[in-house]
């Protein structure tokens, strides 16, 4: 485990805590895309199938449980919780995310490390995570102004991916066999999706103005 990887996981954890904090403190999920959260549940369930089969470390297992349970808790709040579900921007959150699921699954069937159930699910989760943020970015552009917590949420999600890319670069130079081409390609695509968001986030931070995304 290198520092980049740990920083990446901690940043990822922060994104989950930001969402839970926002929902718990404001009892509102306005500005949050339920579609993106549902995609994340699929990502974590498909990727952490090995939670009970191959044990890596206590840290690894604990973090997997945290990510799966928190992503399910967020979807539960946005769908079921009587107060929170009313604040969901149903009309704005219209991205047809099932195409992302179908596309990622098709890609996983074609490109995977081994054509086994577990490897196909793993590749599926990697591809799906790369595009899972799309409904959220579209929702932000639709709603124009971005409230602070949601802006920070997307920012930290992007930061977690940047740390993971640094982690892969570090591992590439320090370990012989390290060649996660699936993660590399999907990770680069995923981080690229954040590029324009980072740009507008930086501009708003520099001008100390509200984050405005071009519609």
């Amino acid at each position: 485990m290198n520092a980049f990887r740990l920083a990446g996981d901690m940043t990822h954890l922060i994104t989950v805590l930001i969402l839970l904090l926002k929902i718990y403190a404001t009892k509102s999920c306005s500005g949050i895309s339920l579609k993106t959260q549902e995609l994340y549940v699929m990502v974590f369930v498909a990727r952490y199938l090995d939670l009970f089969t191959n044990f890596i470390s206590v840290y690894n297992s604990v973090m997997k449980v945290v990510f799966v349970t928190s992503s399910i808790a967020i979807v539960w709040c946005m769908r079921i919780h009587p107060l929170v579900r009313r604040t969901y921007d149903k009309e704005q959150d219209t991205f047809r995310h099932y195409f992302l699921v179908a596309g990622s699954f098709g890609l996983a069937l074609l490109f995977n490390e081994n054509f086994t159930f577990r490897e196909v699910c793993w590749a599926f989760s990697i591809y799906l995570e790369a595009v899972a943020i799309l409904p959220q970015l579209v929702l932000l552009q639709r709603s124009g102004n971005v409230d602070n917590l949601t802006g920070q949420y997307v920012f930290f999600l992007g930061a977690y991916r940047v740390f993971y890319i640094l982690n892969w670069i570090y591992r590439y130079f320090t370990e012989k066999h390290f060649s996660r081409w699936i993660s590399w390609i999907a990770g680069l695509v995923q981080t690229a999706l954040y590029a324009d968001f980072f740009y507008y986030y930086f501009i708003s931070w520099k001008n100390n103005s509200k984050l405005q995304l071009p519609a």
């Binding site: 990822h12 090995d50 890596i56 973090m63 982690n167 370990e175 066999h177």
Partner: peptide
């Protein structure tokens, strides 16, 4: 390091 890299990342 096993030849097949173990999925040790989250």
């Amino acid at each position: 390091n096993p030849s097949k890299d173990v999925k040790d990342e989250l």
